[in-house]
Computed example of a mutant assay.
Amino acid sequence: MNPERLVDMLNDIAANLGVEPDREEALAAIVAHLRRFWEPGMRRQLLAYVDGGGAGLETLALEAAQRLRQASVT
C-alpha cells in the first residue's frame, strides 16, 4: 500500500479515537484498531515507515505506532 495512504488512514483513526479524554485509553484504542483491522503486511509497512522517520504522522498517531511496535504486534 502507498505509504502516504497509510499515514492518512492512521492520522484519521487517531483523530477519531483521540477524542477520548484519557490519552492512555485513546492510545490503547488506536493500537487495538490497528491490531484488529489492519493486515499484518500493513502493520509491517507502517512500522518500517516509522523507522524511516514517520513524516506526516500526527503526534498521537506516531505514538500509537510506537506502542504497536512495543507490543510486537505485526
Results as ranks from 00 to 15, higher is better:
A64H: 11
T74P: 08
S72L: 09
Y49N: 14
D12H: 14
G41M: 09
R35E: 06
V7G: 08
E58Q: 15
A64E: 11
R69Q: 09
V7W: 06
E39N: 08
Q45F: 12
V50W: 11
E24L: 05
E39A: 11
E4V: 00
G54S: 08
E20S: 03
E63Y: 02
A64N: 13
D8V: 14
G54Q: 09
R35P: 02
N16H: 13
G54Y: 09
N11S: 07
A71C: 03
R35W: 02
T59C: 13
N2T: 00
G18W: 11
Q45N: 12
L17H: 02
V7L: 09
Q70V: 06
M9S: 08
G52V: 02
R67D: 01
R5P: 05
D12Y: 15
V7S: 08
F37Q: 10
A14I: 10
V31K: 05
D22T: 03
E63S: 12
L10Y: 01
R44H: 09
R5G: 08
N11P: 02
R69T: 02
Q70Y: 05
M42F: 03
V31D: 00
V73A: 06
A55Y: 13
G56T: 15
R43S: 01
A32Y: 00
N11M: 06
R36Y: 12
A26R: 10
G41D: 11
A15Q: 10
V50F: 13
A26D: 07
I13D: 05
N2L: 04
G53A: 12
S72A: 06
R5Y: 03
D12V: 12
A71D: 11
D8P: 01
V19T: 06
S72M: 08
A26S: 09
A64V: 10
I13H: 04
E20Q: 07
E25V: 11
T59V: 15
A61P: 15
T74N: 10
L57P: 08
Y49W: 10
L60R: 13
R44L: 10
D8R: 15
E20Y: 05
W38A: 01
W38M: 01
